[in-house]
Design a protein around this nucleic acid. Structure first.
Length: 408
RNA sequence: CGGGGUGUGGCCUAAUUGGUAAGGCGUCUGGUUUGGGACCAGAAGACUGCAGGUUCAAGUCCUGUCACCCCGACCA
């Protein structure tokens, strides 16, 4: 991709209102543009990051047997009356022609349960799981912290359906492992801990995945040995580590980057979703739900991986791997840089090429640091004199010369 | 939703006890410059969030309203 043709621009300044690091760097770097509180436009750079996060999540959900679907954002309010959730504070309500009442889905139990019910009649159809990656709408009383807590945000939600509790429990553990894999691939594995949290109305506990970070809204007490924690909200009924019994817990702030629940029969019973067992008797369906917010993950990554100059993207989600800068003003330099760019792209590399721009080298350096691609490559008269390009990793201080012949 | 704060060209800011909007960034033109956010000259771009009110005169004071940020509450 030619930087000169990329929609979106970097900026030296950002409103003093934007205190959160993720909002500052994502806006300044041209990844996102704020529409209103808690609602963002994703520009090409930001969309590439978001898509990469989604793809990692997608791969791991597919790997545990999830079938990807896409459900609507808009749903009849009636469905929420069925489950009694029509009075939720965070629900956005809207109207259709003739006064038809709709809501914007804050989560999709009310959609997925009757949907799966429509195609599922026998215990032999179970277990099954479906997931989607889609935007959710929640009328948060207070949107905050850049893209960490929005009113519209991207979410992967997977729902599993089972003929009995054992099957649910079994799948729940499989999903838990898949979630760990996701965070490991995102580069957050070391600082993301499984955390026991409130199960709401459905079960005693749910599990959250908390990325330990100063800006986190949640307070987590966790065991440094087994890396399992307890959310402060349930510390009253559990004051030692649920996994190992360790009483010596460490307190940290956490960003909730995932949450998994055993829903039990809450939604299946509301919709009368039953299947027939081997004897032809009706069985209530057990459900689980499993959420990860790719947009929140993106904000979390910025909070975790940055320095004073900008973002330091983990390679797995960086919008491009290489940031190729052509410096100087000689036509030959740009011609050479262009060749190198084309060769890299032809070899399958993802390259952002900061080609001819009427700016000084310093501007290109500053933009590269801000955008935060993993590897910076510089082509200039200086490097070409040695048939080389200069290579520097974003998270390292030292650069080295690499012969052009060895690049690809 | 309670408390606090802030709204000024596209962006960031300034404007004394009220006196008729200034600078920087960015953009455009021309020239110089080119390995860490260069420089010179010129240009375009604002009924100061919105609606009222006080006043000879309001960016500035008052009332209302909307928006945004922070703290708290909330958070399947």
């Amino acid at each position: 991709m030619y930087y000169s043709k990329l929609f979106g621009k970097t900026s030296k300044t950002v409103s003093a209102d934007e205190e959160s690091v993720n909002a500052q760097f994502l806006i300044r770097g041209g990844f996102v543009s704020k529409q209103m509180a808690g609602v963002y436009n994703y520009l090409p750079l930001g969309l590439r990051v978001l898509t990469k996060i989604q793809n990692i999540v997608r791969e791991e959900m597919t790997a545990i047997g999830g079938s990807e679907i896409l459900m609507p954002s808009l749903t009849q309010e009636e469905s929420y009356k069925t489950t009694g959730r029509d009075t939720m504070d965070v629900l956005f309500h809207t109207e259709g022609p003739g006064g038809a009442k709709y809501v914007l889905n804050p989560t999709h139990e009310e959609v997925v349960t009757p949907l799966v019910q429509k195609y599922t009649f026998s215990y032999q159809d179970l277990p099954l799981s479906v997931f989607q990656i889609q935007n959710k709408y929640r009328n948060e009383p207070r949107a905050k912290s850049g893209i960490l807590r929005g009113r519209e945000f991207n979410m992967k939600d997977l729902y599993s359906f089972h003929a009995n509790e054992e099957s649910l429990n079994e799948f729940y553990e499989v999903a838990k492992k898949a979630y760990h894999k996701v965070y490991t691939r995102l580069g957050l594995g070391d600082i993301t801990v499984l955390t026991y949290a409130s199960g709401g109305a459905f079960s005693r506990y749910s599990h959250e995945f908390q990325t330990l970070n100063e800006v986190g809204e949640d307070t987590v007490y966790f065991c440094e040995e087994c890396r399992v924690g307890i959310n402060k909200e349930i510390i009253a009924d559990q004051n030692s580590c649920p996994e190992c019994g360790n009483m010596d817990l460490v307190q940290k702030n956490g960003i909730e980057v995932g949450n998994i629940f055993k829903l039990g029969q809450k939604f299946s019973s509301a919709f009368g979703f039953k299947v027939l067992d081997a004897e032809g008797k009706e069985l209530p369906v057990e459900m689980g739900c499993y959420g990860i917010g790719p947009s929140r993950v993106m904000g979390t990554l910025v909070e975790v991986f940055h320095d004073e100059k900008g973002i330091i993207w983990p390679e797995a989600v960086a919008p491009f791997k290489y940031h190729l800068l052509a410096l100087g003003r000689e036509d030959e330099t740009f011609a050479e840089a262009e060749k190198i760019y084309k060769n890299l792209v032809a070899s399958g590399a993802e390259v952002l090429f900061d080609d001819r721009r009427d700016v000084t080298a310093g501007v290109k350096f500053a933009d590269a640091d801000l955008i935060g691609l993993p590897v910076r490559l510089i082509v200039s008269k200086k490097t070409l004199d040695q048939q080389s390009v200069e290579m520097k990793k974003r998270n390292e201080a030292e650069s080295k010369l690499v012969p052009i012949a060895d690049l690809v």
